[in-house]
Write a protein that binds this DNA or RNA. Structure first.
Length: 812
RNA sequence: GCGAGAGUGGCGGAAUUGGUAGACGCGCCAGAUUUAGGAUCUGGUGCCUUCGGGCGUAAGGGUUCAAGUCCCUUCUCUCGCACCA
């Protein structure tokens, strides 16, 4: 389609960059700290499908920004690597017998080639892959530090287990069917079964993870999502003695002021006290309910069944504030995983409890009344969760909700009936998987006691296995590798011991990769402190919203722990975060294999070139928003680059260029500089197009116009940039040339258009010298023939004259 | 349901502190080139019009000389969370 030989140009410069290590960066102490930048992309999982068009979007944005920063004299750290542990490679291994390492490394090779084909300026000497033993050695090392700090522990956690597949399944691998939950693969029945898991005590950092958000330059929506995920709520822990004196039920409530309205209690079906509370005549019903709840998937328990269900246990508890006996029920609207797994039900002031009480005919008592009409006897036709004035609450009647909360907590604390408490939705992180393709947890089971593998013995390498099928017992395939499994206890006792067979989840490697980029070859520590001090924290982190919560929260958690033990210099890793918007298919629908509208970057590079691909993705719209792909739009950008190339074939002359074009050049430098700096690439490109359109109209090709333009273009279309720069007789690389500067005086027009309005409507336009006084403009406006037609015979009430903008004459 | 964000031509999208709405690109139209390809160049292109002008930034109201921009009400869409006591 075009004359411009992009294919040849792009290959040539990619080879040049590779051979010359153009983008290698070192820790040069002469660069002052304010001239250093760490710009990070979220590294990809090297899937078998290869790069999709979403990857180059964020990568191009950071690449343009990095090239821009370098030309402005910054030392820029800009690395790339691979998040290479993960389930797909293991699933493929189970199906084909191919080692996950083999597929993973082949995929990495392909990804690296694809990424390089787009001309990104990474320092490839810093590349890391999380599945590399030299890398995961330090992932294991960090795990041991977590263990030492008491942040790693073992617990039994109910997870989906499939008897037929002999393996543990993730939530998304379980589907709900009329016959109960089934495995997505094979449609076998599955059930929840407690499995021994390694846990990380992220909840210990909940408050710091919350507070840290305040200081971050992140999108507000992401911060909100993290806050909601952590879900801090303040209230009280209250003890309700069992009526038979055999124990007590502890509940968490944010509304201790409604204690007098607690007319029954509800336990989660899985709550350990259910057995003890259940009377013989209720046992059958309770057991049946519990069995059904066990089979419901999370989805069913939340989305599908809005209608409240439950069973009475037959047992009673005593309300600690008024000594009334209240019945204890079980229901799946109470979650075992939140709070204590039990609630006091206040149907008068909680919508869920109200619904439940109505369904089962339980008493509803008003204990809060609206402030303006505090009638204690007014009936409740629906729950009233809003604060108000206490009623029917004995000695506390008349108190406002907030004050009541404080008073009742103090009252309970004095009597040992309850305490002030804070609860989080955030739960401890299940940090193990019963899988092969992950970092082995570096612990050794010495007869029921876990002993850490000594640092010197790291990494605990993945052994070669014969097959990748699950063990059949729910354990990892590693449990079948006897020569790896059995070892000596590292405590010096010499007793026989077994290695931990669980591996870490995929999140582990990505929790700290940004640190390894600082010092990828270090065999004494994750990264040298001086390198951390030189570059950290990350100044700009760009990636998709899909990692808004988990990856970013886990990485922040690890970073804070590393900060606490003195490994890193700040307690937050990523100063500024930008989320790129999703690229949709043509027509605004999602890109998906099933719709057949997936765009393959390789095809685009082959047909239009990497520079066109890069520039088009930046020209589509603002980086942060979702936007649909358009091959016509891509062709438009390609056409622009083709025009640039054809301009470059004109003979350059050293004559002084016309003043108008010099002004346009300076305006262009200003616009491109400011927009690139603020990541507004779409408008920067628009300005370059305007400039080129104008250059195209004049015959003479002025060096003084063309050279600065080539520099402006070079971060966007780096291959073409290098080509044109050398064509102008310069040595490569253009990437180390100084960014052009503009003269502010030349960015302002000498003559401007002034809009003349009558009563706010545009009636005429005149040209005037820039900076003309309001008085002069008003005079010119009144002299204007068109304006006089509109103002004749009218009374001028007011004249607004804004320099360089408009004159508005208000008439009556 | 709750939270966040967004509604501008046929389409993607531009519009400092309120001051020419629709930059730039796509598409479309016309002309020029006579061109083996999704070519190139120039110009035009919000809607209506009795050619004076009128109307236009989701809808309605308000503030102002002036509103895409500020305020109120409503609607729609996208994303996230979703019985969290």
């Amino acid at each position: 389609m075009s004359k411009y030989p992009f294919s040849e140009i792009e290959k040539r410069w990619q080879r040049f960059w590779d051979e010359n290590n153009t983008f290698r960066v070192t820790e040069d102490p002469s660069v002052p700290p304010e001239k250093r930048r760490y710009v990070l992309d979220m590294f990809p999982y090297p899937s078998a499908a290869g790069l999709h068009v979403g990857h180059p979007e964020g990568y191009t944005a950071t690449d343009i920004y990095c090239r821009f920063l370098r030309m402005r004299g910054y030392a820029v750290l800009h690395p790339m690597g691979f998040d290479s542990f993960g389930l797909p490679a293991e699933t493929y291994a189970i199906q084909t017998g191919t080692h996950p390492r083999t597929t993973t490394e082949a995929n990495i090779t392909r990804f690296r080639e694809q990424i390089k084909s787009l001309g990104f300026s990474y320092d490839w000497e810093r590349e890391v892959s999380t599945h590399d033993p030299d890398y995961y050695r330090w992932t294991q090392w960090i795990f041991l530090r977590l263990w030492e700090k008491g942040l790693a522990y073992v617990d039994e956690v109910p997870v989906w287990y499939c008897e037929a597949l002999g393996t543990v399944l993730a939530n998304e691998e379980v589907i709900s069917t009329p016959d109960g939950p089934r495995s997505e693969r094979g449609n076998h029945p599955v059930e929840r079964r407690p499995v021994r898991q390694w846990m990380l005590r992220i909840t210990a950092y909940a408050d710091r993870l919350l507070e840290g958000l305040e200081r971050l330059d992140w999108p507000e929506s992401i911060k909100t999502m993290q806050r909601n995920w952590i879900g801090r709520s303040e209230g009280a822990q209250v003890r309700f003695p069992l009526a038979d004196g055999s124990g007590e039920i502890e509940v968490f409530t944010t509304r201790p002021d409604t204690l007098f309205g607690a007319t029954y209690m509800v336990l989660a079906p899985e709550h350990p006290l259910v057995d003890r509370l259940t009377t013989n005549e209720n046992r059958a019903a309770v057991e049946e309910y519990r069995t059904k709840a066990k089979l419901k998937s999370d989805m069913e328990r939340t989305e599908l069944s809005r209608e409240k269900t439950g069973v009475f246990t037959g047992g009673y508890a005593v309300n600690p504030v008024n000594d009334e006996q209240i019945p204890v029920w079980i229901s799946d609207y109470v979650l075992v995983s939140y709070g204590t797994g039990a609630i006091m039900a206040v149907p008068g002031h909680d919508e869920r409890d109200f619904e439940f009480a109505q369904a089962f005919g339980l008493p509803i008592v008003r204990v809060v009344a609206p402030v303006d009409t505090p009638d204690p006897t007014a009936a409740l036709t629906e729950a009233m969760p809003e604060p108000g004035i206490a009623v029917n609450s004995g000695p506390f009647d008349g108190l406002q909700t907030d004050e009541f909360k404080q008073r009742i907590i103090a009252w309970m604390e004095e009597r040992g009936k309850g305490t002030r408490a804070v609860n989080y939705k955030l739960r401890d992180w299940i940090f193990s998987r019963q899988r092969y393709w992950g970092e082995p947890v570096p612990m050794i089971d010495c007869g029921g006691e876990f002993v850490p593998v000594p640092d010197a013995d790291l990494p605990v390498r993945l052994p070669e296995v014969e097959n990748y099928k699950p063990s059949g017992t729910g354990e990892s395939p590693l449990a079948q590798v006897d020569e790896w499994l059995y070892t000596e206890c590292p405590d010096g006792s010499g007793r026989k011991a077994k290695r931990e067979t669980n591996t870490m989840p995929q999140w582990a490697g990505s929790c700290w990769y940004y640190l390894r980029f600082l010092d990828p070859g270090n065999d004494r520590e994750p990264a040298a402190r001086e390198k951390i001090d030189y570059w950290m924290p990350v100044d700009l982190y760009v990636g998709g919203t899909e990692h808004a919560v988990l990856h970013l929260l886990y990485a922040r958690f690890w970073h804070k722990v590393l900060y606490d033990i003195g490994v890193v210099n700040t307690d937050e890793p990523f100063t500024r975060l930008v989320n790129q918007g999703m690229i949709l298919g043509e027509g605004g629908v999602k890109m998906s294999k099933s719709l057949g509208n997936v765009i393959n970057p390789d095809d685009i590079v082959a047909e239009f070139g990497a520079d066109s691909m890069r520039m088009y993705e930046m020209f589509m719209g603002p980086l942060e928003i979702a936007k649909p792909w358009s091959t016509n739009g891509l062709a438009g950008v390609h056409r622009f680059l083709d025009r640039v190339y054809r301009l470059s074939e004109r003979t350059v002359v050293d004559d002084a260029p016309p003043g108008e074009l010099v002004r346009l050049l300076h305006k262009t430098i200003k616009k491109v500089t400011e927009d690139t700096d603020s990541l507004a690439f779409n408008t920067a490109i628009a300005q370059m197009m305007i400039f080129v359109n104008e250059l195209f109209k004049v015959e003479t090709h002025h060096r003084a116009l063309w050279e600065p333009f080539v520099l402006l273009l070079s971060p966007y279309a780096p291959h073409l940039g290098e080509e044109l720069w050398t064509k102008l007789g310069h040595e490569p690389s253009v990437s180390s040339v100084d960014w052009p500067v503009y003269d502010p005086a030349l960015t302002i027009d000498e003559e401007v258009t002034i809009v003349l309005q009558v009563n706010g409507k545009v009636r005429s336009r005149i040209r005037a010298t820039a900076g003309s006084s309001p008085e002069d403009l008003e005079r010119l406006a009144r002299e204007d023939a068109r304006i006089r037609e509109w103002t004749d015979q009218k009374e001028v009430v007011k004249v607004i004259s804004v320099p360089d903008k408009l004159v508005n004459i208000v008439v009556r």
